[in-house]
């Protein structure tokens, strides 16, 4: 490599025969540079420590939880009752209500977010886009606890007005689901819009040139071309909905119930963790360990979804040009 070049091989110096002072141009080891590089590497390595920390902490406390006489792994995944007081630890009611919230949220967010994305990418003029983008970012930047306030003080009374106070409880899954849907709409809208805008305009021009209308071009050429990106966006949004805490903690109620009725209160996984740890929780109790077991399930659910979404983007992306 370049390290090996020496000045004394310079033909002119040899020709002149003069005693030119030899300059050593080899790359010198620079201690300072290496130290800096090591420090920077250590900064990057913190992220690995974080992951190891999460897995270790959740795993270790979960092991303690399952080692307890009151719990068995089978019971944990099959029992439909979660009542720590009487020793019933079945995670199904918590998972069930989490999934209900998530499905309601996706039913709201996918049509709404996708429609916004298609409008922004295909129809909106520059000026309208310049107005809409910050608005969507604003929706995304509002703290989740504010959405929780909105769910409890606006959406719930409104639902009770429509469906009747006997049907809709004060705390209910529907209200939480709708608001989580609003919360994840910006994610779907921005990520899908990126995917749609990345479709080369040649495809659009070809389609329009063949006589398709603007709508036909958008829905039958551009959307299929960006489909992997849209699916990935929906999966990211889904993982966000599963991990969302404050809205469900405020609006979905504080009793783990196994029910499919969205108008009844039902505590989700995140809501349960927040409620249990909100009190003055004493360590070494089964309650303390149980939230880590729930956390572990939550962690693997969201991690799987995130990995799947990245795989979809990588595997199924339509590459043009």
């Amino acid at each position: 490599m370049a390290d090996q070049i020496r000045v004394n091989s310079d033909p002119r110096a040899a020709l002149a025969g003069a005693s030119v002072k030899q300059i050593d141009l080899r790359k010198r080891p620079r201690i300072g540079e290496t130290i800096i590089q090591t420090i920077l590497y250590a900064c990057g390595f913190i992220s690995i420590f974080t992951t190891i920390g999460i897995v270790y902490v959740l795993g270790q406390e979960s092991l303690r939880f399952f080692a307890s006489d009151e719990v068995s792994l089978v019971e944990f995944f099959t029992n439909t009752v979660w009542q720590p007081v009487i020793g019933e630890f079945g995670i199904l009611p918590l998972v069930n209500s989490t999934m209900m919230v998530t499905i309601i949220a996706l039913l709201v967010a996918i049509p709404l977010g996708l429609a916004m994305a298609i409008y922004m990418a295909e129809y909106a003029s520059e000026r309208v886009r310049a107005f809409l983008k910050p608005v969507i970012e604003l929706l995304a930047g509002i703290p989740t606890v504010v959405y929780g306030f909105f769910a409890l003080t606006f959406v719930t009374p409104w639902l009770r007005e429509i469906f009747g106070r006997d049907v809709v409880q004060i705390y209910n899954v529907m209200s939480a689901g709708l608001v989580v849907g609003i919360l994840i709409t910006p994610i779907i809208a921005t990520l899908s819009e990126d995917a749609l805008s990345a479709v080369p305009s040649g495809l659009r021009q070809a389609s329009l040139g063949l006589g398709a209308t603007k709508w036909e071009t958008a829905i039958r050429v551009v959307v299929p071309a960006a489909f992997s990106g849209i699916v990935a966006a929906s999966i990211v949004a889904m993982s966000r909905a599963i991990g969302e805490t404050m809205v469900v903690a405020l609006a979905a109620g504080a009793s783990p119930q196994f029910t499919f009725n969205p108008f009844l209160p039902a505590e989700t996984m995140t809501g349960h963790i927040a409620r249990i740890s909100g009190g003055d929780l004493s360590y070494q109790t089964i309650d303390y360990n149980s939230i880590f077991a729930i956390g572990l399930v939550l962690f693997f659910m969201t991690l799987t979804l995130n990995i799947v979404s990245r795989m979809i983007v990588r595997r199924f992306r339509e590459v043009y040009e």
């Binding site: 959740l58 805490t245 939550l298 962690f299 995130n306």
Partner: peptide
Amino acid sequence: ISTNIYNLSGVPSIIYGMLGLAI
């Protein structure tokens, strides 16, 4: 590290809370 950073950005915030509580 690079892949890990992307995955970490998708971890629910409450899990970080549990990490903080334990560590």
